[in-house]
Amino acid sequence: MDKKRLNAFWDNIFHKDQDPAQQDLISVLSQVPLFAGLTRRELKRVARIAHLRMYAQGERLFQMGHPGAAMFVIKSGKVDIVIPQEGSTDLLLASLGAGTFMGELALLDDSPRSASAVAAEDAQAIAFFRSDFNKLIEKEAAIGSKVLKELAQIIGQRLKVTNQQLSDLRQTVGHYES
């Protein structure tokens, strides 16, 4: 009994986290491709730098043209990626659901956002701030190498898709021109 009490005392001080919300966060993060290679212990470390945010329908997660400072993982709800149009409805690029992530380039630099993200319905998102993320990968090199490798692969994949789309578009335009 005394030993248990002593363990509980040290657990409180050194944050042996048994919080259900924390467990929930870890299980969501484990589904995200960016964190696919991480062990449970490493996911716990990543969860410690996460900010959980609630968004009402129609609220913006980030806006096109603003400097990017955080990457968002959707925990629940739906988020639309749009390009705002003056005087008309926004141009919808993609609609993302739970487990997907967006704004990952903000983890690399603070270049302006290329599109806006708007909550299509009440949503919960997990945000990772660039500076916290950089500190984490400096301190935990193993986590850093795994996450950055995944990020490079994802960006490479998206570049391939974009190239393919560009090539298809050129072919279509060429077809119409001829």
């Binding site: 944050h15 410690r48 900010h51 945010r53 400072a69």
Partner: peptide, 24 residues
């Protein structure tokens, strides 16, 4: 011992619109 809990608790009070700006 704090691993950013204090900062995260304070940031919780910030409206979504200013979230990234406040963190920066």
């Amino acid at each position: 011992l704090d691993e950013g809990q204090i900062k995260r608790s304070l940031v919780l009070l910030v409206p979504n619109r200013y979230f990234e700006m406040v963190l920066t």
